[in-house]
Simulated scan of single mutants.
Amino acid sequence: MQIDAIDQKILSELQADGRVTNHELAGRVGLSPSPCLRRVRQLEEAGIIQSYVALVDAAALGLHVSAFVRVRLDGQDDRHLAAFEAAVADFPEVMECYLMTGESDYQLRVMVSSLAAFEDFLRQRLTKIAGVSQVTSSFALRPVVYRTAIPVDAAR
Rank of each mutant, 00 (worst) to 15 (best):
M1F: 06
Q2E: 08
Q8Y: 03
Q8T: 11
K9W: 02
K9R: 13
I10R: 01
L11F: 10
L11T: 10
L11I: 12
L11Q: 08
S12L: 14
Q15H: 01
Q15S: 14
Q15W: 01
Q15R: 05
Q15T: 05
Q15L: 06
A16D: 07
A16W: 00
R19S: 14
V20N: 02
N22K: 04
N22R: 00
A26S: 08
A26Y: 11
G27Q: 06
G27K: 09
G30P: 06
L31N: 05
S34F: 01
S34G: 14
S34T: 11
P35G: 03
C36T: 07
L37C: 01
L37K: 05
R38G: 01
V40Y: 07
V40M: 02
Q42D: 04
E44I: 15
A46M: 00
I48S: 12
I48L: 12
Q50C: 03
S51C: 05
S51Y: 05
S51T: 11
D57S: 15
D57N: 15
D57V: 06
A59I: 13
A59Y: 12
A60I: 03
A60E: 15
L61W: 03
L61V: 00
G62Y: 06
L63H: 13
L63Q: 14
V65G: 10
S66W: 01
V69T: 14
V69I: 14
V71H: 13
R72K: 09
R72D: 07
R72G: 09
Q76R: 15
R79D: 11
R79N: 09
H80F: 14
A82Q: 11
A83V: 06
V88M: 07
A89L: 14
D90P: 02
D90N: 14
F91I: 13
F91T: 00
F91V: 10
P92E: 10
E93H: 09
E93A: 15
E93Q: 15
M95K: 11
M95W: 08
E96P: 00
E96K: 09
C97A: 15
C97E: 02
Y98K: 09
T101E: 02
T101R: 05
S104T: 13
S104Y: 06
D105Q: 06
Y106N: 04
Q107A: 09
Q107C: 04
L108P: 03
V112W: 02
S113V: 11
S113A: 15
S114Q: 08
S114W: 08
L115A: 05
A117E: 12
A117K: 05
F118S: 03
D120E: 13
F121L: 10
F121D: 11
R123M: 11
R123N: 03
Q124G: 15
Q124N: 08
R125L: 05
T127W: 00
T127I: 13
I129M: 07
G131H: 02
S133Q: 10
S133E: 14
Q134R: 10
Q134P: 00
S137H: 01
S138P: 00
S138T: 06
F139D: 06
F139I: 13
R142M: 07
V144R: 13
Y146P: 00
R147Y: 12
R147I: 02
P151L: 02
D153G: 08
D153H: 04
A154T: 11
A154H: 06
A155F: 10
A155M: 14
R156D: 07
